[in-house]
Design a protein around this nucleic acid. Structure first.
Length: 282
DNA sequence: ATGCCTCCCGTAGGGAGA
């Protein structure tokens, strides 16, 4: 099973390009972020014509997450437990929960499409929201990975954090000045990993290969990008990963997203190997 | 540098992205 994540930056603008990539790369499951539309606005037809079922969660023109799959999508959740809300200019415990998380089970794997809050600036309430959001995700991850460790579990998406210096190639993004690289954000990321998930891509792709390049200032031609999109898998997930790739070419050409897809290959579950479903003597 | 680029809503110009 081939599973990917991609911040598409508007699925209505990008659906042809996304579906082309899914078909070309023979992808079974795609977690999308920043679809920037409501479910009824999602271009379902383009995905269905290519054989994909889609579950989308979007409340307005901001954020929005979705999962497309060539297998049935079940046990859908539109937020994780205690996921914090946010409303600009407001504080308190009862703010609206944004469309930044979508959980689903596909092919026996528990997946989340996640769009971690940006943070905006180090002094912005959005930055506090980002850290709170990651803390709640950490507790949920701990509960899942310890509660049912046998179920392959993966957090996939745009984490808006460059965990290591090598993940930031943009000289305008600097520790002490910018979000995405602060010690607090990096600590939150590592604490999340310590709750029971590991980056299953890093050891399989070259360091310095980014997943995002700003549209401005020729950031892509200059290769001044950041690696901020990740697939974090539980032990049961990680042990089935056989390959991983970052599809840099999807930043090229006409009307690209500012992010590119990240893909992993998952071996079939033991006793569920597709090869063994075939007749042995033909 | 309140800049640059792109997308949203709505039809001008502001919010958001990172």
């Amino acid at each position: 099973m081939r599973i990917a994540t991609w911040n598409v930056n508007s699925i209505r603008t990008r659906h042809a390009r996304v579906v082309d990539w899914l078909v070309r790369e023979d992808v079974d499951v795609l977690a999308m972020q920043e679809i920037k539309c409501k479910p009824e606005q999602f271009p379902h037809e383009a995905f269905e014509a290519a054989g994909y079922e889609v579950v989308a969660h979007g409340l307005n023109q901001w954020n929005g997450v979705a999962i497309a799959a060539r297998h049935p999508i079940t046990e859908v959740e539109t937020h994780f437990p205690d996921q914090p809300g946010f409303l600009k200019g407001h504080e308190g415990p009862d703010l609206p929960i944004e469309a930044r998380a979508l959980g689903a089970t596909v092919g026996g794997v528990r997946l989340w499409s996640l769009y971690v809050p940006n943070g905006r600036t180090l002094a912005d309430p959005h930055y506090v929201y980002k850290l709170d959001w990651l803390a709640a995700l950490t507790e949920y991850t701990r509960a899942e990975t310890t509660g049912r460790p046998e179920v392959p579990f993966a957090l996939m998406g745009d984490f808006n954090i460059a965990p290591f210096d090598v993940d930031n190639g943009d000289p305008a993004v600097r520790v002490g000045v910018s979000t995405h690289v602060s010690p607090e954000e990096r600590e939150a990321f590592f604490t999340l990993e310590n709750a029971g998930v590991a980056d299953v891509v890093r050891a399989r792709v070259p360091e310095g290969l980014y997943t995002y390049w700003d549209y401005q200032q020729l950031k892509f031609p200059r290769n001044e990008g950041m690696r901020i999109d990740f697939i974090l898998g539980s032990a049961a997930f990680a042990e089935r990963v056989t390959d991983a790739s970052i599809h840099r070419n999807e930043r090229k050409g006409t009307a690209p997203s500012d992010h590119v897809p990240v893909l992993v290959d998952l071996a079939d579950a033991e006793g569920d190997d597709e090869d063994f479903d075939r007749p042995m003597f033909l």
